[in-house]
Structures are given as structure tokens and as C-alpha cells.
Amino acid sequence: MRIPSWLAQHVAALRALLVFTVLLGIAYPLVFVGVAKIPGISDQSGDLTLIGQSFTDADGNPVTKYFQSRPSAGGYDPTATGASNLGPESVVDTLSDDPEEASQSLLTQVCARSLAIGKLEGVDGSRPFCTADGVGAVLAVFHRDGFTGPITRVVAVNQTDVPFVTTYQGVTVEPATNGEDYQALGGVITPIRGDAPADPVVPADAVTASGSGLDPQISPAYAELQAPRIARERGISLDRVHELIEQNTDGRALGFMGEPAVNVLKLNLALDGS
């Protein structure tokens, strides 16, 4: 019996798929799984120092004798990789007494990290658009006519206690109330730059989460910032620390690819070993 041509097409398709599944889906990967076992070919494969880890204690506080990694959206859990995915204008926190309900804006996360690192390293942790208490310095400004007209009300949207400024253009700034959406009430969300230096002491990578959540590296600047603390905690010379940083820094490949970066785990292992 002749099978109809539409069916023949599908039969051919199925056979083709099976052939390719065997070739590409089974043979090809498995051959390389085998190849990977040949010594010298993939010595680094699955190297633990390729992925980062956090150097914190059980409570999440930094263990001070170790260089600290970057913040991670997934807490350096390889089974939950990924990023915060918060946008550049994520500046308004959701305030609530219930920690489940509350969430920090990206700005507040950055401000809080900067403040904490500043404190840990004994440097100025201030940043533009951050309050002194480490949240986003953001006001909801209410005008009579929406975007224009006299200001009628100003709320510091990320602060429930004392606002970071007392007045805004002559209007008293009030603290925010939990659960209130001031944007929806007609407030114009206005981040306040403040007078922090444009080039903060705490480097950018120290206050931002990586894309993978497993970034094994920090910038040389962040390592440099932490070096005095490490030297102090471990009682070794700052030069020795610098030397180890140097040894564990990957420069740009061929001099132009990517950015120089310091592998934190390797560096800490080296510290422990020395």
C-alpha cells in the first residue's frame, strides 16, 4: 500500500529527527564528556574557583578576614543563578511592616550596600541619590496641577521616620506611610542628587549584583579598598596583601578583552595558605 505523501513527509521527518537525536543529542555530547576526562584538556572544567561564593557567616555578616565578593541576587547559589532585574529607575521602596510585603528598590539596595561597605572598610560610603541612612533619597512632589503649579506636598517615599531633608522648595517634607503609593496619588517621583561626590569611594561593582549571581571576581579597585582591613585582621603587611591581589588578578586577555578582575576565592585561598 502506498502511503499518502503528506504522511510520507512526516515519516521522513520523524526518521530524520531520530537520526539527528542520536548523532547530535547523544553521540556528540557524550564523546566530549569522554574527551573531558583526558587529562590536560579540561583541567579547569568545573573548577570551583570559577564560580564565586559569599564570605559571610551564618547570619550573613561579612567574615572580616576574607575579601568580600560582590552582592549576588541569588546568594551565590548555583541552583538559582540570575540577576536582580531591577531597572535603572527602580527608586521607590515598597514599605511595609511585613517583611514579605516589603521590597527594596535597586537604589536603596545600592545605598544600603554602599553605607555598609563604607562602615566595614572605614571609608565614606555616601553616594549620589542616597540618604545618610542608606536608602534612596527620593521625594514624591505634589504640584497643584500635576507637573506644574505650586508645590502642595512633599513626601520622602523611602523613609517612614525622619526624612533626609526637612524642606523642599519651601515645603516641609513629610515621612512616608507604609503601604502608600505616592506615585498613584499624583506625586512626581523626584530623586535628589545630594552632595555626595560623583566618584564615590566604594566602587561600582561592590554595590551592584552581577548578572549570574555567581560572579567570582571583583574589580581591582574593590580589592584595593578591602586590602587594609585584610592586612589588619590577618596581621600581615599591606604589601603582602597587594602582592596576593596582584597574583590573583586576571588582566584583560590579549590586553583588550574585558576588564581586569580579581578572583576572590583564589585570593582568599591564597591568604589562608600563606
Binding site: 535603572p88 529607575e89 534612596g136 530623586p191
Partner: peptide
Amino acid sequence: GTVPQAVGSAMEGKETRYG
């Protein structure tokens, strides 16, 4: 943008090695 200005560069969601 507010956050990139606060940070000093748009490093959120990016790996150190790629910059």
C-alpha cells in the same frame, strides 16, 4: 539614569570580567 548615576556606572546585572 538614577541608579547608574548613584552607582557611578551601569554595573547592575553585569559581570566584573566583561565590564
